[in-house]
Amino acid sequence: MGAHPYFTAKEFALRLLRLKARMRAAGVAVALFDEIEAMTWISGFGSSANRWRCVAIPLEGEPFFLIRALDASVCRERSWIADVPTYRDWEDPMPVLAAALAARGLDGARIGLDFDSYGMSVARFAAMRAALPRAEFVDIGAVVAELRLIKSPAEIALLRRAAGIADQALQDAAALCIPGASQRDAAKRAQMTFVEMGGDPYRPGPITAGRGWDFLHGHLGDAPLARGDVVHIELTPRIHGYSARVMRCVVLGEPEPERSRAATLLAELQDRQIAALKPGAIAADVDAILRRGVIEAGLRDSYDNITGYTLGLYGDAGPRTSDFTRILHPEANWAIEAGMVFHIYASAGGAALSETVLVTENGPELLTRLPRGLFVNP
C-alpha cells in the first residue's frame, strides 16, 4: 500500500467516511468513479483516460483500483488502495471489473455511477451493462465534486502555496510585457516561476494581447508587443494538483482614461462582492453585486458569463480547465459555506481582475495578494 507525498492516511480515511455516508443515502452497495479528479481525491492517484480505469468503493469490503497494467506500479506507490486489478492495453477492462465485483459478491448489486461523468461514454456504459447483466445501475451524481467543495486544512494549505506562486509568477510575467517582447516570453517566465517555487510543471494559463478587452481566452501569439497593447494574464498554477488563480491586465504605455476608470470601478465592485462571500450568503446575491454594478456603470451592455466558480483539485489529464461545481450567476440559489474556495473574476471596459478567495467562518480571506488594479509598464 502506497503513501501520498502530501496527504495523510487519516485525511483519506475521513474522505472515505464522508463518501460512504453519501452512498448509503443513495442506497447503493458499491460506487464506481472514473473521473480523474474523483479518483485522485478518493485514492491519492489518478491517470489519463487513454485506457478506461476506475476506483470502486464498496460500502462493505475492500476497495479496488482497476487500471491498465502499465500504470499499476505507480498507482500502488501513490494510492492507499492495496487491490489493483489490471488488464493489458489491448484487452477489454469490463470482464476484469466484473470479476473484481463478483469476488466481493457485488456483481448483482445496486452500483452507483455519475451518469454525467466525462469518463463514461455511451459505448462504455453499454459494455458495462453487458458485463454485469444482474446489476442495477443508479445515478448518484457528482458526489465527489460536491464533497470536494469544503476544503480540509491540508487542502487549504496547498491552495495558499499555489496562491503565492500565482502572485509571484504574475509579477515575473508582467515585467516581461514590454515593447518588442512577445506573449510567449511572459508565458515562459510564468511557467518557470511555477516550477522554481515548487509548483507542478503545468501550462501557465491564458496569456493574450490585444487592443480591446474581449479577448481574455484568446490564443498565445508570437507578434512583438507594442506601446498601446494590453496583455491579459490569467495564471493557473497547481501544486499537487491544487490550483489557485489570479488575473491582471498589463498596459504598455499610459492607459487610456476609460480603461483606468473601468479598472477602478471593477476593483471597487469586486471588493464589495468579495466582502459579501460569507457563510450563509446566497450565491445569486453575491453575483448581483458585480453583475448589476458593471451594467449600471455602463461598462458592459450585458454580462453573459459567470462572476466566480469553485477552485480546488484538478487532474493532470482532465478535460475541464475550470471547476464549475458551484458558479456565481443570477439563478444560483445555494448558500456560501465556510471552507469553499472561489476564483472571483471580472472583466469590462478594457480591464480584468481576479482573485482566489477562501471563505472562512469569519468571512472572506484573499489568498492572492497583488495590488488591485492595472499593471502599467511605461
Score class of each variant (00 low, 15 high):
Tyr242Val: 01
Tyr242Gly: 00
Ala244Asp: 07
Ala244Pro: 08
Ala244Cys: 15
Ala244Arg: 03
Arg245Ser: 12
Val246Tyr: 01
Met247Lys: 06
Met247Tyr: 02
Arg248His: 07
Cys249Ile: 02
Cys249Asp: 15
Cys249Tyr: 03
Cys249Gln: 06
Val250Asn: 00
Val250Arg: 00
Val251Ala: 08
Gly253Cys: 12
Glu254Tyr: 07
Glu256Ile: 04
Pro257Gly: 14
Pro257Ile: 10
Pro257Asn: 09
Pro257Ser: 13
Pro257Asp: 10
Glu258His: 14
Arg261Phe: 09
Ala262Thr: 06
Ala262Asp: 06
Ala263Met: 08
Ala263Val: 05
Ala263Thr: 05
Thr264Cys: 10
Thr264Asn: 10
Thr264Pro: 01
Leu265Phe: 04
Leu266Ser: 05
Ala267Asp: 09
Ala267Leu: 08
Ala267Thr: 03
Glu268His: 14
Leu269Thr: 00
Arg272His: 08
Ala275Lys: 06
Ala276Ser: 14
Leu277Val: 01
Leu277Pro: 00
Leu277Ala: 01
Leu277Trp: 00
Lys278Met: 09
Pro279Arg: 07
Pro279Thr: 09
Pro279Ser: 11
Ala281Ile: 12
Ala281Cys: 15
Ile282Gly: 01
Ile282His: 04
Ala283Arg: 05
Ala284Glu: 09
Asp285Pro: 02
Asp285Glu: 15
Asp285Ser: 13
Ala288Phe: 00
Ala288His: 03
Ala288Trp: 00
Ala288Gln: 05
Ile289Asp: 04
Ile289Glu: 07
Arg291Val: 08
Arg292Tyr: 07
Gly293Ile: 02
Gly293Lys: 02
Val294Cys: 06
Val294Ile: 15
Ile295Cys: 14
Ile295Val: 15
Ile295Gly: 07
Glu296Asp: 15
Ala297His: 11
Gly298Trp: 03
Gly298Leu: 04
Leu299Met: 09
Leu299Trp: 03
Arg300Val: 08
Arg300Ala: 15
Tyr303Ser: 02
Tyr303Ala: 02
Tyr303His: 08
Asp304Ile: 08
Asp304Glu: 12
Asp304Tyr: 10
Asp304Gly: 14
Asn305Gly: 12
